[in-house]
């Protein structure tokens, strides 16, 4: 093999390596640019569901960021949303539509429909969230810090 052909061979290898390198760099970038299926979650608010998901007295537990939130609809049609974690020992609370109260089954603690602790062991009220109804969507939002 003469000098020129060796050089051509090396050039050929170099181009091959370079192309592989360009692909290995471009591939992650292209994949990165394609947005993921999960829509980006706006952490200050989240859609809790459709209006039809909440009949009178209906309730649902959703997650806003890392916080579980209890969303329910009162007998008069108003929505309420509050932390779903009991202030006593961190159990998950539930809405009892019969008496429009929020109940923690662990030690029989009760909150009123505004989240105030009214009986049993809970030492503090549940933190409140805002609920906005936009057309047929129910949106839960972190309260604005004034």
């Amino acid at each position: 093999m003469g000098q020129p052909s060796r050089r051509t061979f090396l050039d050929w290898l170099f181009r091959g390596g370079l192309s592989a390198w360009v692909i290995s760099v471009t591939y992650p970038i292209v994949r990165y640019i394609i947005p993921p299926d999960v829509p980006e979650i706006d952490m200050s608010s989240i859609e809790a569901g459709l209006l039809s998901d909440f009949p009178i007295g209906g309730s649902k537990i959703i997650r806003l960021g890392r916080t579980p939130v209890l969303v329910f609809r009162k007998i008069n049609g108003d929505f309420r949303a509050m932390e779903a974690t009991c202030t006593h020992l961190d159990c998950t609370v539930q809405f009892k539509k019969e008496d429009e109260r929020v109940w923690c089954a662990c030690h029989n603690g009760y909150y009123d429909s505004d989240g105030k602790n009214i009986s049993g062991p809970p030492p503090r009220p549940l933190g409140r969230f805002d609920v906005i109804v936009q057309q047929d969507k129910v949106i839960v939002k972190k309260p604005d810090l004034a």
Binding site: P28, I29, R31, Y32, I34, P35, P36, V38, E40
Partner: peptide
């Protein structure tokens, strides 16, 4: 969530 986001 983003593919290769960690890498970037």
């Amino acid at each position: 969530k983003v593919e290769f986001g960690w890498l970037i």
